[in-house]
């Protein structure tokens, strides 16, 4: 597999798995308006995943299409970060995970929209409009929940302890990523924005946390197996079937 296809799959898998996690909230959100907002983000992410998969499928030839890539690869073939496959936890964990990822995607797509690969650039240019909203929405919620009540502050602080070890992987490029982005620049922008929002939310970044890394090279947690068992169940049970 070429680095180009690997990179597209990494982008697609991140969007799909986070979209999947968010979609688990649909119908169960804390208030109707936010249920709708998170479902909307989920839809955007799945739309982004489809664009990346379609492009990857067109490059890989064979009999691939967006669905074979999403439904007929095993856990070790997925290249998403460990962060996006983490369980939803409470609303605070979900919101914080969204913020950490959207903040990364925002600066990532800003670079990619100028990539020399025009198809990739076009997908990124479309996605950045959506991600701008995701980042604004999730930033506002991190601040609201961090600043809100003693309970919400404690929950957000716990969420931060839980998720922080997974943020290192976002900012540490896999071999196939390096040709595409200036990671040092993204890292700086990501850190500045994260510091700004967490400070306003009166939350403190944990120190001495041990990084969890591996998803981008296919070494996943058991959570991804569970996600794929569920997501892929029908196409796997009835192969060669049109739905």
């Amino acid at each position: 597999m070429t680095d180009q296809i690997k990179y597209l799959l990494c982008l697609a898998d991140n969007a799909l798995i986070l979209g999947h996690r968010n979609s688990e909230w649909c119908g169960h959100g804390p208030v109707l308006e936010q249920d709708i907002a998170l479902t909307n983000i989920s839809l955007d992410l799945i739309g982004q995943a489809r664009n990346f998969y379609q492009y990857a499928a067109s490059l890989s030839g064979a009999d691939h299409n967006e669905d074979t890539l999403a439904y007929h690869r095993d856990s070790h073939e997925f290249l998403n970060t460990l962060l996006v496959e983490q369980p939803n936890g409470d609303w605070g964990v979900t919101i914080l995970r969204q913020f950490l990822v959207s903040n990364y995607q925002y600066y990532l797509y800003q670079q990619l929209q100028h990539n020399s690969d025009v198809t990739l650039a076009a997908i990124a240019a479309k996605a950045i409009k959506e991600v701008t909203y995701h980042l604004r929405w999730s930033s506002e919620w991190v601040i609201r929940l961090g600043d809100g009540t003693t309970e919400s502050n404690q929950r957000m602080q716990q969420a931060l302890h839980l998720l922080w070890p997974f943020t290192y992987e976002l900012l540490q490029p896999a071999d196939y990523e390096t040709g595409y982005i200036d990671v040092t620049k993204i890292k700086q922008l990501w850190q500045d924005k994260t510091n700004e929002i967490l400070a306003e939310a009166t939350l403190s970044i944990p120190n001495n946390s041990q990084p969890f890394i591996g998803g981008k090279t296919g070494a996943h947690s058991e959570h991804l197996t569970a996600i794929l068992n569920e997501m892929q169940s029908l196409p796997r049970a009835y192969p060669n079937t049109i739905w």
Partner: peptide, 17 residues
């Protein structure tokens, strides 16, 4: 009921903020 009860802290935090 679970969705509503589990979301109580979120609604309270939003109101407090």
């Amino acid at each position: 009921r679970n969705a509503w009860d589990n979301g109580a802290w979120v609604r309270e935090a939003a109101a407090a903020h």
